[in-house]
Design a protein around this nucleic acid. Structure first.
Length: 601
RNA sequence: GGAGUGGUGGCUCAAUUGGUUAGAGCACCGGCCUGUCACGCCGGAGGUUGCGGGUUCAAGUCCCGUCCACUUCGCCA
């Protein structure tokens, strides 16, 4: 037996016992005669005291210890003494009332000097990743990784209790043209052909419903070959769920229960249920986002009627073209700097706006307002916006005018940017604003491609009341889907839908999406076939586990909750992957690179 | 593919906006210390300022190129 206790276990009640601890040398405080070593394992830290009078050899050896050496210490648990009437208790550590008086020391493994110190925050991401195994030793990382484990446990328990069966689905699967770029794996046994890594187990889980599994879940690794972000990795994990004979409400109840348990585990709080449900268009019109952050106000106000006949040409033209004029009031931000205005304008342009109209409200009197556009407004318009936007001295008003969708995007983004600039979220980190966004549109028109795409995915069921509209293209934009997203504080935790389970409806859906019969047979023949043999009504959801754990851990990047993440470019700096492979390996796969590598050497 | 920020001893950062021998804290090495807990004290070692070029009497600082990292847009549920 290596040890009798872990390093966060000993208390005054253990006094007098002889115990053995194992762990890493956290700190060394060499006083010459007496030496204090804090020994650390994943649970915590315990102070060991080495004195020559207890064991001369151990004391001597203790002088050679350095940070991160792995040691085994045996000794007697003592309550920390009073020295000159002063307590030597350390209330910063849980074991601070005792110490281990060492009688035996074994160095299990010496450590070289580390490339970075574990007791300091490190800004060098590069270095952290290169020595990730050391980075993970730090308490914050270790806590995150263990929280992730606790959360997946909680999810498994929760779903098992509800009768869900965990089923694994293939990692080597088939490329589908829809959605993100696939990772491809050459199939040696079928020269010239490729597997694709799954972007999500979507089709498999529906087929499991046809198979009569009824309640499926999987903590599933998914792959997408797109550019990375702080909250995006090429491989990521979804909590994938599908159930038969359920409606949206059943899914909501299930997921709410699961999330309540998760935040009980991570925050120790009871999240109230049921979560509020917000209509998609209400979210878009009010917050300019389908995953709004509602922890602060500055909601979007429609001013289309006010400016319907405006003397300001830009507004008037937008409205005449079927567009809208809307604005947000950034309360108290009239002090915005020129640089910030520029940044906001950039932001608006990125979201599709032509420019940014604004008013800096500096005083009660309109003559003191600073704005490039206000001179075009008449008295009635000014009174109307004062009233509708609740304008007070010190406010900043930001306008958007264009098509409804564009204005939503623009003002939605500005709203978040302003919140960032003004620190509106400071002190609100503990708020947990969970809700559902429902009644998504089923279809969205892609201007570039000139075709209709599925907003969620092609298997999403239209709302019963809207099914008939599939026959009339002019009504496609108005079809609502039986789809839902669950949101927390402006983050999409997951989304799902009730699916189509009839092959004729599914076939019609494919047609609407511009997938002809031949292509349907080729790419989706198996699922259409399956639906012909008695597919039960079913639906499900997928939650992004990485993001969920990130939020539960209070981190800002999913890399902080993934043991071995990839960097911006999809590289693993520790193992130096991806890497070149031997020519022979490629030959066996019938592959030849076309990369021009004259830049090398 | 575009944009932004950054790259200075092992780590975190500084260096008067172009001017002496590139500094400090931590870590490291040596010494001292029997109650420390971010221990303390004395001493020491450690640098091709990411790389390449240019401007200049003089470049960590300015210019061009390039590489790397992070953030972001495009892309991506």
């Amino acid at each position: 037996m290596y040890r009798t206790h872990h390093c966060n276990e000993l208390r005054q009640s253990h006094a007098g016992e002889t115990v053995t601890l194992c762990g890493w040398v956290n700190t060394v405080r060499d006083q010459g005669g007496v030496i204090f070593i804090d020994i650390r394992d994943r649970e915590g830290v315990t102070q060991c005291v080495f004195r020559a009078e207890e064991n001369e050899e151990a004391n001597k050896l203790s002088h050679t210890l350095r940070g991160e050496d792995v040691i085994q210490v045996t000794g007697r648990v003592d309550v920390r003494p009073e020295i000159d009437g002063q307590s030597t208790f350390n209330d910063k550590i849980d074991t601070g009332e005792v110490e281990l008086v060492a009688t035996e020391l074994t160095v299990l493994n010496k450590a070289e000097v580390l490339p970075f110190q574990l007791d300091k925050e490190l800004s060098n991401e590069d270095l952290r990743m290169k020595h990730r195994y050391l980075d993970l030793r730090r308490p914050r990382m270790s806590k995150n990784i263990r929280l992730r484990g606790d959360i997946t446990n909680s999810i498994r328990n929760n779903l098992a209790e509800q009768g869900f069966t965990e089923v694994e689905t293939p990692i080597l699967s088939k490329s589908t043209p829809e959605g993100a770029r696939d990772f491809l794996v050459p199939a040696r046994l079928s020269p010239g052909k490729f597997y694709a890594l799954p972007q999500a187990p979507q089709q498999y889980k529906q087929l499991l419903m046809v198979a009569g599994v009824e309640r499926y879940f999987q903590i599933a690794r998914c792959f997408r070959d797109e550019d990375l972000r702080a909250d995006r990795q090429p491989e990521f994990t979804q909590v994938d769920i599908e159930a038969s004979f359920v409606n949206s409400d059943d899914i909501f109840t299930l997921i709410e229960g699961m999330l309540v348990d998760i935040f009980k585990v991570s925050h120790g709080v009871d999240v109230p249920t049921p979560f509020e449900r917000v209509d998609y268009w209400h979210a878009m019109d009010t917050y300019g986002s389908d995953k709004p952050d509602r922890r602060f106000g500055s909601e979007i106000v429609d001013l289309t009627e006010v400016f319907a006949d405006s003397g300001f040409g830009v507004f008037k033209k937008a409205i005449e073209g079927g567009g809208v004029v809307r604005a947000i009031n950034a309360k108290g931000f009239a002090s915005v700097s020129t640089g910030q205005v520029k940044r906001l304008e950039e932001c608006a342009k990125e979201a599709g706006a032509g420019g940014l109209a604004y008013i800096q409200v500096r005083g009660e009197d309109v003559s003191k307002w600073r704005s490039p556009i206000i001179k075009f407004f008449n008295e009635t318009e000014l009174e109307a916006i004062k009233d509708k936007l609740d304008i007070e001295d010190g406010d900043l008003i930001l306008f958007g005018c264009d098509k409804r969708q564009t204005v939503c995007d623009v003002l939605g983004r500005l709203r978040l940017e302003v919140a960032e600039m003004c620190g509106w979220l400071e002190g609100k980190e503990d708020i947990l604003d969970f809700f559902w966004v429902v009644d998504f549109p089923l279809l969205g028109y892609d201007e570039e491609e000139g075709k209709w795409n599925a907003v969620h995915h092609p298997f999403t069921r239209p709302k019963a009341d809207d099914v008939a509209k599939l026959d009339d293209e002019s009504q496609w934009a108005d079809i609502r889907a039986e789809a839902y997203d669950v949101i927390l504080n402006g983050n999409e935790l997951g989304g799902g839908s009730i699916r189509i389970h009839e092959s004729d409806l599914q076939s019609k859906m494919f047609s609407v999406l511009g997938i002809d019969e031949e292509e349907q047979a080729e790419n989706f023949g198996h699922i259409l076939g399956a639906f012909a043999y008695g597919a039960p009504p079913h639906g499900g959801i997928a939650l992004g586990l990485d993001r969920l754990v990130m939020l539960a851990a209070g981190e800002e990047s999913i890399r902080e909750v993934i043991a071995f993440p990839k960097n911006n470019k999809g590289n693993d700096l520790m193992s130096a992957s991806p890497a070149e492979v031997d020519f022979k390996q490629l030959r066996e796969l019938y592959l030849k690179s076309t990369v021009d590598d004259k830049k090398k050497s």
